[in-house]
Design a protein around this nucleic acid. Structure first.
Length: 258
DNA sequence: ATGACGGTGTGGCACCGA
């Protein structure tokens, strides 16, 4: 089973690229972030024709998340239960696999702008609420995958300039402590289960030739629960879509189970 | 210190992202 995550930065603009990527990479499930469209404009038919079920949680202009899946999606949850949030950042769903059910959780984590800002405070509250909810999810779904745009570079090696960007957004100790708290629930960063090229990133700034100079961050992640860890056989970042014309600034991450 | 690029929505730009 292959599960992927991709921040597409507007599904309206990126739909042809998503469909093209799925033809080459027919993953079982794909979590999308930053749809930037309302549910009424979600392209259900295009994905259906590509062989995917879909569940979306859209919003105008900003945010918006969705799951695509070859098998039906059930028990869909939108946003973090009990956490009042005007922004559409979470969608969770369950799928069946031959090895057993898998709980799929997809998040577009808060950016946070800068430490000390109101947006950073919201990021901290959001991360705490996510942690507490994931803990309860794990109690009822032991085979769980948490994917998405985490907007956190977990370690210095996940940044092109850990010295120059020390304590700036994505790099602060507070954000990294929240990432660690998720790992402490028994989740594992699938990408780091394997030997990886140095300077592996999943996002590059559109400006200043960021991608060409590999000035990027690894902020898109796939975390797997303890019950799934032994079945993880691969995890990689696919840089290819970043070379497209009109690319998203993020590129997909893919994990293989079994 | 600023803006650079790209998307959205509004309207001839401002805003947000990371």
């Amino acid at each position: 089973m292959k599960i992927a995550t991709w921040n597409v930065n507007s599904l309206s603009v990126r739909l042809p690229q998503v469909l093209a990527w799925l033809e080459v990479n027919p993953v079982d499930a794909l979590g999308l972030q930053e749809l930037k469209l309302i549910d009424d404009k979600f392209p259900h038919q295009a994905f259906e024709e590509a062989g995917y079920h879909a569940a979306c949680h859209g919003q105008k202009t900003y945010n918006g998340v969705a799951w695509l899946s070859r098998s039906p999606l059930s028990a869909v949850v939108r946003n973090i239960p009990g956490f009042d949030d005007e922004q559409a950042r979470i969608i969770a769903a369950s799928v069946d696999s031959p090895q057993g059910p898998v709980r799929l959780i997809n998040g577009y984590f808060v950016n946070g702008q800068a430490p000390g800002s109101e947006k950073f405070a919201y990021k901290m509250r959001w991360l705490q609420a996510l942690h507490d909810w994931i803990k309860t999810e794990l109690a009822t779904h032991e085979r769980l995958v948490l994917v998405g745009d985490f907007n956190v570079a977990p370690e210095d090696r996940d940044s092109f300039d850990p010295v120059g960007l020390k304590d700036t957004i994505h790099h602060t100790q507070e954000e990294r402590a929240h990432f660690q708290a998720l790992l402490d629930l028994g989740l594992t960063d699938a990408f780091r289960m394997f030997e990886q090229p140095e300077k592996s990133f999943s996002w590059w700034d559109y400006r200043m030739l960021g991608f060409q100079k590999n000035r990027g961050l690894r902020i898109d992640h796939i975390l797997v629960s303890q019950a799934l860890q032994d079945s993880v056989s691969a995890c990689s970042i696919d840089r290819a879509p970043r070379k497209n014309s009109q690319p998203s600034d993020h590129t997909p991450v893919v994990v293989t189970l079994g």
